[in-house]
Design a protein around this nucleic acid. Sequence first.
RNA 1: GCCCCGGUAGCUCAGCUCGGUAGAGCGGCAGCCUUGUAAGCUGUUGGUCGCGGGUUCAAAUCCCGCCCGGGGCUCCA
Length: 630
Amino acid sequence: MRSLLGGSALRLLLIHAEEFSFEARQKAIPSAEEVSPERKSGSARNALVVFCTVEKADGKNPDAVVEAATNEVVEVFDKVRASEVVVYPYAHLSKDLAPPTLAVEVLKKLEQALMDKGLKVFRTPFGWYKAFTVKCLGHPLAELSRTILPEEAKLAEKPEEVEAAKSTFVVLTPEGEEYPLDMKNPLSCQVLERDPALKQLVLNEAGLKEERAAPPHIKLMKRLELVDYEPASDIGHFRFYPKGAVLKEALEEFATQIAVRDLRAMKIETPFLYRLDEPDIAEQAARFRERDYRLEVDDREFTLRFAGDFGLFKMMKDVTMSYKQLPIRVYELAPSFRLEQRGECVGLKRLRSFTMPDLHCFCKDLGQAMNEYRELFKQYTRLANSMEIDYAVAFRVVKDFYLENKEWFVELLKIVGKPALIELLPEMKHYWVAKHEYQAIDSTGGNMQLVTVQLDIEDAARYGINYVDEDGSKKGCIILHSSMGSIERWIAAILEQAAKNIASGKPPKLPLWLSPIQVRVIPVSKAFLEYAESLAKILEAKGFRVDVDDREETVPKKIRDAEVEWIPFIVVVGEKEVSTGVLSVRERGVGTYQVQLEELIMKLNNAIGDKPRVPSYLPLRLSMRPRFAA
RNA sequence: GCCCCGGUAGCUCAGCUCGGUAGAGCGGCAGCCUUGUAAGCUGUUGGUCGCGGGUUCAAAUCCCGCCCGGGGCUCCA
């Protein structure tokens, strides 16, 4: 906006006109363009009329100005779907006019540049008093003004490339070998062939992604009666059907297990809503660049939390911590809200309301923080591996930190057993010196961030989170921020993995511990219903999610329905089973076999391991289950 | 936020070009069959054609606006 007050620039006023006509009456200046009689008047329909003023400063770099202006005009032209362009010299947009010779030069170049872009253009003569009529269409884009600054025009040729070019990339293997990675030609890096997920991540990062179809998890989440859009809410807020609720709870329970049982973190809860007149809240919110939900209550402005940090930092500020107590780990399963752009909210990949298992470690020094990091890394790797999905590992590190601690990175990679993309930042750009991400690769080749840990050496001091050291003095902590992704995104990643199976001809499935129904018992006829139910109740008592298909359908039909529902274990019971006590089990993706009940239970226990066992949210009898969707 | 595509029965979709009585399959319901590892048979129910306005004797169909969804771009602790 500075250019409207001072400075000097090419000024454009764009009108999308239903009709436009003009007539040149008489010369206004001696150096007026000489024109033939047929160019002295004209008209156009559905035209983009470009009123255009050339200023003195445009003379510094006329070609760049013309190029930038051309791009602006073409962009608007395409948007409004005009059929021709009128370039209209219009001195009245400026007090700092360019000399006529320069003005004509720029205008002619603009005309030519627009024609080169394939547009139908006519330019009204320069230096004349002209009569004109213009009938503006009056839609939102029908009237626009643009100011092209010469300095911006120069920058426009290489937008922000400077910034991005600063990072360099390498691939590091668990064996400690380092390979340079040229993002302009990433495929030349042979080591990527070792890890297809990493290769895909690098291609995405290099901007080489191809056109993608809709992510298949959206259809799957509906078809499997898990999750669906809720049109009565804002975009990106979902409804969870009972089967989706089981899946979500199992994932939440697993995250909590890792945090509370395995890492001995302290679980807390903090409010969702925060006052913006609190300075540190306002500062945190500002760092999030208007992607938070705002609302006003009783004349006071509030923000909905976009992560657990607000309440956590407030809480930790008041905590008295001794160096002897560190590291301190704090966990919150934090429903969070982010006002993501509408177009960005697609399925479960990115939501405006989601659930984030948020773990922070408060450490006394860098050494302790790096040990903590390793602990988190171990546990989160176990988490990622439990999902049975493909993922890639990426680190973002300040270069000096990487060079000093390369061995530590290799150690981490040994835990996960995969090579990693390492982005080396020339300097501290964020509050962290190092972070890593586990990125799931979906069935269309896109990636989504699941887990992240960030090593933060700044925030504690800023928010007054201190511990008391040996000498009695207060010192700021080193903070590890970590998120075990979002529960919803894990669901997306798991469904995407299933979609990959479908594409490669394998039967899609969910990990057993996440299947809403793990075992379905199918009685061959009504006569065996009671037996089927007693069997189901035994399995249920052992902690499995079971149901019984008691519907009046044929066995093949019931088998089919169970397979369509991706049920991992199907047990058919009839005369044979009652008399022999041996069960006929159909295992998804494996086949049919005979086992004793005890063997089946052992098999299920082994497959589930120590993953959470949440009870079924569905009726035992299939006939009693209502249909929520699909 | 911008551009493109879509919204028809609970679900998946046809019909829309060229306006003239809203269709199929699945599901639901009823009956027959009495069931052994991916769909037994017959009948039947079910729709303010996303919402609002306009054009027309007549609109699912043509026009305008909005809402919802999908894709791309942009953006992205």
